[in-house]
Amino acid sequence: MHFPTTCPACGQEVPVEFADSAVHDVVCPFCGARYVVYVRKHKFEVLFDLGTKALLDGYAREAVASFAAALERFFEFYVRAYALERAAERAGDFGAALAALDATWRHVASQSERQLGMLALAYLLREGRAPDFLTPKALGSDFRNRVIHRGYLPRREEVEAYAARVFALIDRLLGELGGSAAHVELAQEEAFAAHLATLPAGVTAVFEEHPGMFRARRFGGTLKEKAVPPSKTAPPLNDAQAFARALAERGPGLELFRRR
């Protein structure tokens, strides 16, 4: 999957493939200028947006893989946010805390069950209650496994239901994290700064923030609701309604992503 950038030298649109690090080294095919695009977006966001785009384009099975991966990477995001939040409370060295966190995560990086264990403990310590969302039913594990591991070809409505479940869970936990997510934002900015310091002369740095299914919450606050008299307050949205609403409001922005 690609996203378009604008060459800072000649102004031509250049398609760039998403990089795992969110750092994209680009050579303009039109004028030869070198520049680096830093995308302020976390992996779980990119994966969920790619899943949404795949679903909209009719690639239902591929969408499931992206949604499942997005959930796993969000669980990592949550653990990192909690660990860095605690480090900030102790007024310790942020760089040292981040290095210790990275070293610790390496022990579980290839073992999803251990990652779930870290998430469960982080949630318990932060919220003071057991995570009620780690059951196979709540996570949609059976559906995910049938699609990814047993080759099941899902119907679109099944994928939409799974996407809604994943969206609602991530949205809920982002809300509970609140400002603590800023600690992971800072970690990303420090990674960008370290890369920026290595750029040779003549290479331009470009920072971008892309639209997406979770961007409204994280960069502009929650979407404001129209005032409704108390007597006419609408019931809370269920998972499917919340996903459908977010898709209608933010989905058009996903046209930024293009298959090439």
Rank of each mutant, 00 (worst) to 15 (best):
H2P: 05
P4S: 04
T5P: 08
A9G: 14
A9E: 15
G11M: 01
Q12I: 06
Q12M: 13
V14C: 10
D20K: 14
D20M: 12
S21M: 09
S21I: 08
D25G: 09
V27P: 08
C31Q: 06
A33N: 10
A33L: 06
R34V: 05
V39K: 03
V39W: 06
V39Q: 09
F44C: 00
D49P: 05
L50G: 04
A54Y: 07
A63L: 01
A65Y: 12
S66V: 05
A68R: 08
A70S: 09
A70H: 00
E72Y: 06
R73H: 14
R73Q: 13
A83W: 04
L84K: 05
R86V: 13
E89R: 12
R90Y: 10
A91M: 13
F94K: 11
G95K: 04
T104N: 15
R106T: 13
H107P: 01
H107I: 12
V108K: 05
A109G: 09
Q111M: 12
S112A: 14
E113G: 11
E113H: 10
Q115D: 06
M118R: 10
L119H: 07
A122I: 02
L124E: 14
L124T: 10
R126W: 13
G128T: 04
G128I: 03
A130R: 13
P131C: 03
P131Q: 02
F133R: 13
P136T: 01
K137H: 06
L139G: 04
N145F: 00
R146S: 11
V147Q: 01
G151S: 00
Y152M: 11
V159E: 05
A161D: 15
A164G: 11
D171S: 10
D171R: 05
L177S: 02
L177T: 01
G179P: 14
S180A: 10
A181V: 05
Q188I: 00
A191D: 15
H195G: 03
L196Y: 11
A197I: 00
L199C: 09
V203M: 01
A205T: 00
A205C: 03
F207V: 09
E209A: 08
E209K: 05
H210G: 08
H210Q: 13
P211A: 04
R217D: 07
R218N: 06
F219N: 15
G220K: 09
G220V: 05
K224D: 15
E225A: 14
V228L: 15
V228A: 15
P230Q: 12
K232E: 15
P236I: 02
N238K: 03
N238Y: 01
A240R: 15
Q241C: 08
Q241L: 11
F243A: 06
R245F: 09
R245I: 07
G251Y: 02
L254F: 08
